[in-house]
Structure formats: C-alpha cells, structure tokens
C-alpha cells in the first residue's frame, strides 16, 4: 500500500509541470493568427489527421526500421569490440587513439560521407545510425571490462568455467551496469542520426516529412512532425528504462540495501 502511494505521488509530482506547460501553450496560442505559430488545437487536429494512422506506414515505419536496425547492429558491434578490447588492455592501447578520433566526429556530420559510400538508400541511413550508436556502447563496455574484479575471475577459473561462461555469466553481467549507461547514450544518438539522415535525399521518414513540410510552407504538418518526434523519443526512453531496470534488478536491489 505504501509502495502504491509513493508511486502515485511520484507520478503526480512528475506530471503537473507538463500539464501546466501544455495548458499554457494551448491558451497562449488559441487566438494566434501567426502562420508560423498556429494554435495548439489546430496542431492537435492535424496531428490526429496525419498520425492516426494515415502516414504511419510511409513515414513512421521507415524511421523505426532504420533506427532499430542501425541501433542493434551498432550496439552488437559495440559490446563485442568493447569486450575484446576491454579484456585485452595491451591490444586496446593500439586502437584507442583511432577510437578517440572517430568518436569525436559529430555523428550527424558523417551522414554525407555515408551517402558517398551507400548512396541515398536505406542502407546508408542504417549504416550511419549503426556507426553512431556503436561508439558510446563500445567505450562503456571497454570501461566495464577493465574494471573486472580479479577475485571474480579467479573464482571462475577455480570452478573451471568455460570461456563462454566466463564471458556471459561473469564478465558481461559484471560490466552490465556500465554497459547499460552506454546503451542509453547510444539510443539517443541513434535517434538523432536516424532523423538527421532522412533530411538529406529522402521522401520517407518522420525527418523527411518534417523537412518537406517546412520547405513547402505546410507549417501545421511540420509542427505535428515535431510533436510526434518528441512523443516518440519520450516513449523510447520510457521503454528503455523499463528494460534496463528489469535487467539490472540485482544491481538496483543491492544498491538500495547498501544505502
């Protein structure tokens, strides 16, 4: 009961400001005749018209496909490479300068380079997302692996665990709190690059829809695209948090007990 109460209270504390802001936007814009700042009520009507569900298949699906394909390829590569490099500090020293250089390039700026390699296909967008998503996960996995407690590895050895068990039952779970923080940054970057990649040379995707709307003075449509992106990004984060918390329940429980 107490748990329930505290959850309700936390929800109420979190929700009052968004409600206030929406209400303020709604009333402030209600009588607007400025073509660039239409009333929120008009945006909402147009939003329902566009996104429930008319344009979802041609704009939302391609964006989500590129996002997820790129993200999962990127984090898979990031965890694998990060594990290899993190477990072999001597090898990783040779790669670190290159990794540091590559990750310093703003991911959005690399999209034109990917166009040179892949043209304007979906492959280009997925590749750009994958590469951008790879780095935060790669770095956090390396860091997590370097911090492996030697006692834990000794325990694994004396109980004759196989290399596979050592990897997936000992080293990866041990590094997982740090890996998860990398995965979250990767998701945010992947989202940005997905949308940014659609701005160049695409007719499909939420980013493309929004840009084309602006270019053709369909301001109301552009606004609905922005609102949709906000909602989508928020939803992705909420889902991510739930999965992370489930996966790290041992870690969270331990921390809670210690405090």
């Amino acid at each position: 009961m107490r748990l329930l109460n505290s959850r309700i209270i936390r929800f109420l504390v979190g929700i009052w400001l968004p409600i206030l802001l929406i209400w303020w936007w709604w009333t402030w814009s209600a009588d607007s005749v400025d073509p660039f700042f239409p009333p929120l009520s008009a945006i909402w009507e147009q939003f329902k018209f566009n996104w429930i569900w008319q344009y979802v298949p041609i704009h939302v699906f391609p964006s989500l496909r590129n996002l997820f394909a790129g993200y999962f390829i990127g984090i898979f590569a990031g965890v694998t490479l990060g594990a290899l490099l993190g477990a072999n500090p001597r090898v990783s020293r040779y790669f670190e300068p290159v990794i540091d250089f590559l990750r310093s390039i703003p991911p959005v700026a690399t999209v034109p380079v990917f166009i040179l390699f892949f043209g304007l296909d979906a492959q280009m967008r997925i590749a750009a997302v994958a590469v951008a998503a790879c780095f935060p996960t790669l770095l956090s996995t390396m860091q997590g692996f370097r911090a492996t407690d030697p006692t834990l590895l000794d325990t694994g050895k004396v109980f004759r665990l196989t290399p596979f068990q050592m990897m997936w039952k000992v080293r990866v779970p041990n590094a997982s709190p740090i890996i998860w923080s990398g995965l979250q940054v990767s998701l945010q970057i992947a989202f940005v690059v997905t949308i940014a990649s659609e701005i160049l040379g695409s007719g499909f995707g939420i980013g493309a829809f929004t840009t084309i709307s602006i270019d053709s003075f369909m301001i109301l449509d552009a606004w609905t695209g922005v609102v949709l992106l906000g909602l989508l990004g928020f939803a992705l984060n909420v889902i991510f948090d739930l999965v992370e918390r489930w996966s790290l329940r041992w870690y969270i429980g331990q921390k809670k007990l210690a405090s």
């Binding site: 834990l152 109980f159 041990n174 041992w250 870690y251």
Partner: peptide, 21 residues
C-alpha cells in the same frame, strides 16, 4: 590448471559470489 577434484572457498564472499545470480 585448476584440478577437477578440488573446490575452493575464498575469503571475500562478496566478491566471489556473483551478485547477479
């Protein structure tokens, strides 16, 4: 390497038991 027939108990149980299991 570690012999089959031998099992080990280490001093620091907090670091030798896996907290995620």
């Amino acid at each position: 390497s570690s012999p089959d027939d031998l099992a080990v108990v280490l001093q620091d149980y907090t670091r030798s038991l896996m907290p995620w299991l």
